[in-house]
Amino acid sequence: MQTRTLEFVYSGKLDAGYLFEMYQGDIHTTLEVFESSIYELSKELQLAVDYFNKRDLRSLQFLYHKLSPLLGYTGLPKLQKQVQQFEVFCKKSTSTADIAGQFTYINILICEAMVVIRQELIRLKQFINKNA
């Protein structure tokens, strides 16, 4: 597969330097990973609600562990760290009641991040189509 390096300017809401170090300017791989990440984030968030309702703290902890790198792949390393802290909080807690407030808060942050990622996906696709 031929890799083309195009100069795409990331949204200011994402960590452009971090993304460049990861993708080396390969815009096609960036698009592919962003698409996959948004799909996995949606799936995992739905599962998180299910686990919370079932009071399954261990599965919740594992889920946030799995989910956190997705935020890194999409240029949101600060939010990734917040999710990792929430994962540790889950580990230290003994019931889902203990984490309820934090659970809602972190999910709101992730949902807001997903809006940003979706917008960036649209921009990435437009950029690739324009330069095809």
């Binding site: 597969m1 390969d26 799909y39």
Partner: peptide
């Protein structure tokens, strides 16, 4: 790797 996004990026790194 159970995280598809991680596997994609790793595979591209290997190709590169």
């Amino acid at each position: 790797e159970d995280l598809h996004s991680a596997a994609i990026l790793l595979q591209r790194h290997c190709e590169r």
